[in-house]
């Protein structure tokens, strides 16, 4: 079947078998190997990507089912704020040692991103619940929780700075007008 899937803001058209799994489509056909897989029963959550903004397990979505939908992978996390800048969630994982082997990390970060998009100030329990469909064998989860908390705080600070900046700007304009 010929399908077009929007991945990280770009349409990709490929000929695929109906049985092609989304995770393999991303990895094999688009060379987006940042999305990993770790089981066959949709338990481990290593393969989590965002589908229309929400976390889904891409080992349990057929590529044909994703046709016409928007998929976001780890490769699409950086740069949304312009340039090549890391998303606050990515930065949080570095700052708080939220990863060790790095295998579950893309899925964890995408879930963190989706959570903060809906709930900018989640509690520790809300973060734990949000990532409870994803396994990590290295970190014992605490530093993943802290990484997402770091990102939440960072975003709040940036937002505060952004709201402060526009008020400064009109003031300057006003001052300029008076002179």
């Amino acid at each position: 079947m010929r399908i077009t899937v929007n991945v990280n803001g770009e349409d990709h058209t490929r000929e695929v078998e109906p049985r092609h799994l989304l995770v393999r489509f991303l990895r094999d056909d688009l060379d987006l190997t940042g999305t990993h897989w770790g089981c066959d029963t949709s338990n481990c959550g290593t393969c989590v990507v965002l589908m229309d903004g929400e976390p889904v397990k891409s080992c349990t979505v057929l590529a044909v089912m994703a046709a016409g939908h928007e998929i976001r992978t780890v490769e699409g996390l950086a740069g949304t704020a312009g340039g090549d800048q890391l998303d606050p969630v990515q930065q949080g994982f570095i700052e708080e040692h939220g990863l060790q082997c790095g295998f579950c990390t893309p899925g964890m970060m995408l879930t963190g991103r989706a959570l903060l998009d809906r709930n900018p100030d989640p509690s520790e329990q809300e973060i734990r619940e949000a990532i409870s469909g994803q396994l990590c064998r290295c970190t014992g989860y605490l530093n993943i929780v802290r990484s997402i908390q770091w990102a939440a705080k960072k975003q709040a600070e940036s937002a505060a700075a952004a709201t402060a900046a526009p008020t400064a700007a009109p003031a300057a304009t006003l001052a300029g007008g008076q002179s």
């Binding site: 929400e54 409870s132 994803q134």
Partner: peptide, 9 residues
């Protein structure tokens, strides 16, 4: 029931 990503689908 299951977990958040599964509940999304």
């Amino acid at each position: 029931i299951a977990d958040p990503p599964v509940r999304n689908r």
